[in-house]
Amino acid sequence: MKTITYSLSAIALVATLAACAAPMNNSQLGSATGAVLGGVAGNQMGQGQGKTAATIVGTMVGSVVGGQVGAQQDRYYQQPQVAAPYYNRGY
């Protein structure tokens, strides 16, 4: 069962990344990666009938957390970078 879960997670991640024609920003990439990792973690924690629910909740939580981390990185990298003055370049 674990092999099937890992295989489906890998296929879902590859399909998500391949489906985007434009390059993904960090928020989208973080959301997709978080969803896959959260789904795998939830599947490992759940037992019996709760396994499906744990997988779904793990996917949702992982997607939100991954998207927030990626959005924070997007905001950081979009800030203007100030170049050092010529006299302070270290050479």
Rank of each mutant, 00 (worst) to 15 (best):
M1D: 08
M1K: 11
T3V: 06
T3M: 04
I4C: 01
I4T: 02
S7C: 05
L8D: 06
L8Q: 11
L8F: 07
L8G: 04
S9L: 05
S9A: 15
A10Y: 08
I11W: 08
I11Q: 09
I11E: 13
A12S: 15
A12I: 06
L13A: 13
L13R: 09
L13E: 07
L13I: 10
L13Q: 09
V14K: 13
V14H: 10
A15P: 10
T16Q: 11
L17M: 11
C20V: 07
C20L: 07
C20K: 04
A21H: 01
M24L: 15
M24G: 09
N25Y: 05
N25A: 10
N26W: 15
N26Q: 15
N26S: 15
N26C: 12
S27G: 08
S27M: 14
Q28I: 14
Q28S: 11
Q28A: 14
L29G: 06
L29H: 07
L29Y: 10
S31P: 04
S31R: 05
S31M: 15
A32P: 08
T33D: 09
T33N: 14
G34K: 03
G34Y: 06
G34S: 13
V36A: 13
L37C: 14
L37T: 14
L37Q: 10
G39T: 15
G39I: 13
V40G: 08
V40W: 12
A41C: 12
G42D: 09
G42P: 06
N43F: 03
N43W: 04
N43E: 00
Q44A: 10
Q44I: 05
M45K: 11
G46K: 04
Q47T: 09
G48T: 03
G48E: 09
Q49C: 00
Q49E: 13
Q49L: 02
Q49S: 04
G50A: 05
G50V: 00
K51M: 03
K51Q: 09
K51S: 03
K51L: 02
K51G: 00
T52R: 09
T52M: 09
A53P: 00
A54S: 10
T55K: 02
I56R: 06
I56K: 04
V57D: 00
T59P: 00
T59R: 01
M60G: 00
V61N: 00
V64N: 06
V65P: 05
V65C: 12
G66D: 08
G67I: 08
Q68K: 15
V69Q: 09
G70P: 07
G70Q: 05
Q72V: 08
Q72S: 14
Q72T: 12
Y76I: 11
Y77E: 13
Q78N: 13
Q79V: 01
Q81E: 14
Q81V: 13
V82S: 10
V82N: 08
V82E: 12
V82C: 05
A84H: 15
A84I: 14
A84F: 15
P85T: 09
Y86T: 10
Y86L: 14
Y87L: 12
Y87D: 11
Y87E: 11
R89Q: 11
G90M: 02
G90H: 05
G90I: 00
G90C: 01
G90A: 01
